[in-house]
Write a protein that binds this DNA or RNA. Structure first.
Lengths: 192, 192
DNA sequence: ACCTGAACACCGTTCAAGT
DNA sequence: ACCTGAACACCGTTCAAGT
């Protein structure tokens, strides 16, 4: 089909994004990489921001799909830890995609919102499963899920910004902070 | 002194940043707002990124100074909560400054690094004071401070991106997540 | 030491055509 | 329906002068 061009445009944009951030995603170079003219993108996307939103949507769907695969292979608590680690690894490997996916989310397409809601729902269901086993403290599972998401997001953001590299030794990597939080939560679940 | 021009340039850049993000900070408009030509900024800053870094440094110093004022007016745990709330309030009121201060931190000036290190040291000292009173769990205070920072940073980031507004009701505001984490930590401190 | 006006290269976006 | 080349406005940056 002719939508092939659209997919090639997105792929080219992702390549440029990974190399130099959103500023490096010039529509002229996107067109050249995709083998079309410098303003062919305007037949597939409203503007540059719309193209970036398409990348964010595709990336978010990828994260959501991966979550679906990782769940079910592990008991709830282990699934949570595995999920968080996979998320951190993705953010480290593709920092520009991570930053973009949590940027101007407002102008995001419905597809982006759908993928994000899907990922959120999966996370909440794991939290509920862990609560049912008394492996996490009781309370609103949405709120516990939000706590986990916020910590992972913040720890990765700090690592990418160089905040966590302040100490000489490697304490306080995102992975460490995730383990710490899970530890406190698990401990709090096993109370009198 | 003639450094007055530099201060006026930074003030103009902050005004434009607050209005429309880094993209709205055009050196031409910065110059016009400051009453100089469109390339006078190059006599005070290496390039646009350097001007933005100067804003980040100034803003970080403001945060660090506020921390110093808030500490000492409260016992440790209350100081932590107050600090976190002040931080969240600042990020909500000036989202573009918040995003900038945690962006390309890498190219940041020494002044930025100094201000950030200063804020971090103050936070760590409060954590230690709380640990000494057994109001926070034992362990590396740097790591506990990193956990708090990551949560606050992540919760604010999600709120600004619209992630936390998913549920109809206002659960899971950054303030709620801060309280939740503090609650789990306090509970974990009072163990057998 | 600090500032200015002119100029350059680059980019997002639009438009009138082309198939 | 999709693509192209030319053109416009805007921006970061540099340069040769000015005081």
């Amino acid at each position: 089909v002719t939508t092939d061009t659209r997919a090639r445009l997105v792929a080219a944009a992702i390549e440029l994004l990974d190399r130099g951030g959103p500023a490096a995603v010039t529509l002229r170079e996107v067109g050249q990489l995709a083998g079309v003219s410098h303003n062919a993108p305007y037949r597939h996307f409203a503007d540059k921001e719309d193209l970036l939103a398409a990348i964010a949507a595709q990336e978010m769907r990828g994260r959501s799909d991966l979550m679906g695969r990782l769940i079910g292979e592990h008991p709830p608590i282990e699934a949570l830890r595995t999920l968080a680690r996979a998320y951190v690894a993705w953010a480290r490997a593709k920092p520009e995609r991570f930053k973009l996916s949590f940027g101007a989310w407002n102008r995001g397409s419905d597809e982006l919102r759908r993928a994000a809601a899907d990922a959120r729902a999966q996370l909440i269901s794991i939290v509920q499963a862990a609560q049912a086993r008394s492996e996490l403290p009781p309370g609103d599972p949405e709120r516990l899920a939000a706590l986990m998401m916020a910590l992972v997001h913040g720890a990765v953001g700090q690592a990418l910004s160089g905040h966590l590299a302040a100490g000489d030794k490697g304490h306080a990597d995102p992975e460490d902070l995730v383990d710490d939080l899970l530890g406190y939560l698990i401990q709090s679940a096993g109370r009198g």
